[in-house]
Design a protein around this nucleic acid. Structure first.
Length: 592
RNA sequence: CGGAGCGUAGCUCAGCCUGGUAGAGCACUUGGUUUGGGACCAAGACGUCGCAGGUUCAAAUCCUGUCGCUCCGACCA
């Protein structure tokens, strides 16, 4: 490609709405342009890079035996109602109406469609196992799109779905995909690592996310350097000890705490109750019903955990008004001690609470199990209790691990201190089980004559996000540093004098033709611009290899081979093609 | 959904407080000079000052509404 023939609108300055390095570089290097919030056009150069990522994904999916297909992005809402996700994923579903007022949804993933297809086309164990995938545009109604392609309303995702006859067979599929993912990210030049993950909206039993470490990532990962443990913070647990029991079994003691509404205030004079001897009482609204969550005063609730336990995504903190209606006291004085909770809730003015048939469920963190001598709100404004024994005084519905792990806690596997770092989620693999196959009727007749639901798995890769993650992980002050595997062009030839009959341009044209003949993706910067402009642009765009040709070096019988991330190598003109081909070979990971 | 900020040339922004002829740099066009790290000179083109309404003799500027964008928050009672 000749530079003058394509469109590479580089910018000296980044648009003001770009925050992170990769987003700025995508815009400055002329790869994408924003059409609206979270909606982007891929310009020619950006599309080339995107296609390279897609091709790597395609090759590895094919290698793993998955079958490519293409499903509609525009989908009828009925199948979403059937799976139950019309409600549970409702906050991210784009919904629209056609001119006949019929409703449609724009697909964020395609479990419903593929399961519907499998239901009608797969009927026998003889047809299994099967894994299908597609690379297509997806939609999410993001509350707050940001960081360019990282969190967009419209994006490209590879989604794959496996159908198996048994858990054992599904496990084989899962591992195959897991391996394929490791290969894909390695080929993209990404340092991605798998972590245990929460299953979120998709649902299912078991999952891993593939994470790219980055300060600007929107996820936090808990990991152990001593052993293999790594988990999304939404899922992570630690070996932190339970609250130490105290010897005494003293009776409840109510005391006045006027103006004290925080854990911190209660930990100071004159009360001096350490945060780790307090019980924090939180109220959430899950599917429009209040639930009470208890956690130790010095711990943080992990909302993803409680949402997972209740099995809803429609979970939010209750407002002060809702809390008073449900509890009969205001935040800061709440408590779940049985007697007070009951008396407050029975108060006739608590209409909201009365409208609920059942008392709110009380979920407590495991770390509080067996705790006594604790302090918590009396569920009466301005009062707290001392000497609370949680098992004696509070009717806990169920115990769970609900707290958020913090750095330095002992690893749940090996006991060494855990670390936490930020990361970008680029891939996600799930074991789905029969959640969708049961609801949408994807069953098969087994060898024994029994009809059973398929065991499913699903596997996603954010293709556009992966592209941006590559840039986020590989750039410097001058611009992008593309790995060869996803660079829009591998080689940029930069003649410093573009006079058509000059020796410089003639040599440039020859090297260009020779490289192209070798199958190298090469671009020739034939613009009649000053050298500085051309050098800056080639570094901003980040081509892995630049071949500089100018009168000065040519007089010495040399051209300049400049790897984007390395030092300049003088090379004889008739050796340059060979050297370039070798460089490309050296920088391509084995196994391709 | 709550709070804050911003919408002026393709991009970065000034002008707004204190109402009175629409600005700069970069980019773009033409001519000339220059030519190994984002050149220089000259001439030029590019704006319903987000949109709608109001106040006023007069609105980019003040007021109201609206749309869009950005940031913070929407666990830590």
């Amino acid at each position: 490609m000749k530079w003058s023939q394509t469109l590479i609108p580089t910018l000296r300055e980044a648009p003001a709405d770009a925050e992170i390095a990769s987003h700025k570089l995508l815009l400055r290097a002329g790869l994408i342009r924003k059409l609206a919030g979270g909606v982007y056009t891929f310009l020619p150069l950006g599309l080339r890079a995107l296609h390279k990522v897609e091709q790597i994904v395609r090759e590895e999916m094919d290698r793993a035996g998955a079958l490519e297909m293409l499903m509609p992005a525009l989908q009828p809402p009925e199948i979403w109602q059937q799976s139950g996700r019309y409600e549970t994923a409702g906050n991210v579903l784009f919904k629209l109406k056609d001119n006949g007022n019929r409703e449609w949804v724009l697909s964020p993933t395609a479990e419903e469609v593929i399961t519907t297809t499998a239901a009608s086309e797969i009927n026998s164990y003889r047809q299994l196992p099967k894994t299908f995938y597609q690379i297509s545009v997806k939609f999410r109604d993001e509350i707050r799109p940001r960081f360019g392609l990282m969190r967009a309303r419209e994006f490209i995702m590879k989604d794959a779905y496996s159908f198996d006859v048994s858990d054992e067979a599904a496990q084989v599929c899962y591992l195959k995909m897991y391996d394929a993912y490791a290969r894909i990210f390695a080929r993209c030049g990404l340092k991605a690592f798998p972590v245990e993950a929460d299953t979120g909206v998709i649902g299912g039993k078991f999952s891993h996310e593939f994470m790219v470490p980055a300060e600007t990532g929107e996820n936090e990962v808990v990991y152990c350097e001593a052993c293999s443990y790594a988990a999304n913070i939404e899922k992570a647990t630690s070996g932190i000890p339970k609250t130490a029991a105290r010897e005494i079994g003293a009776a409840l003691e109510k005391f006045a705490t006027p103006g004290v509404f925080t854990i911190e205030a209660l930990s100071k004079e004159p009360f001096s109750v350490a945060a780790n001897r307090q019980i924090k009482t939180l109220v959430y609204i899950a599917d429009s019903k209040p639930v009470i969550v208890l956690i130790r005063g010095d711990d943080q609730l992990n909302e993803a955990k409680i949402a997972g336990i209740i099995g809803t995504t429609i979970l939010r903190a209750a407002t002060a008004e809702e809390i008073f209606a449900a509890m009969g006291a205001h935040p800061g004085s709440l408590g779940a001690v049985a007697s007070t909770l009951e008396s407050q809730q029975k108060d006739p003015i608590r209409r909201f609470a009365e409208s609920l048939r059942d008392a709110p469920k009380i979920y407590a963190d495991e770390r509080l199990r067996g705790a006594n001598g604790m302090t918590t709100g009396a569920n009466e404004d301005g009062f707290h209790f001392h000497n609370v024994s949680i098992e004696r005084d509070i009717q806990v519905t169920q115990w769970f691990d609900l707290r958020t792990v913090t750095a330095g806690e002992p690893c749940v596997k090996c006991g060494k201190p855990l670390k936490i770092r930020r990361a970008i989620e680029v891939g996600h693999v799930f074991k789905l089980g029969t959640k969708y196959s049961e609801k949408l009727g994807s069953t098969f007749l087994a060898e024994d004559g029994q009809r059973r639901p398929c065991i499913m798995g699903c596997y996603g890769i954010g293709v556009t996000r992966t592209l941006q993650a590559v840039i986020e992980q590989s750039n410097d002050t001058n611009g992008i540093i593309w790995p060869v595997s996803v660079a829009p062009y591998t080689v940029c030839i930069t003649p410093l004098n573009v006079a058509p009959e000059g020796a410089v341009m003639k040599l440039a044209e020859k090297i260009y033709a020779d490289l192209a003949a070798q199958g190298v993706d090469v671009i020739l910067d034939d613009r009649d611009d000053r050298p500085g402009v051309k050098f800056k642009d080639s570094e901003l765009v980040g081509f892995p290899i630049r071949i500089g040709i100018g009168e000065k070096s040519l007089a010495k019988g040399e051209v300049e081979l400049k790897p984007r991330a390395g030092a300049m190598i003088p090379v004889k003109p008739d050796e340059v093609v060979e050297r370039v081909v070798q460089l490309i070979k050296d920088s391509t990971p084995a196994g391709k």
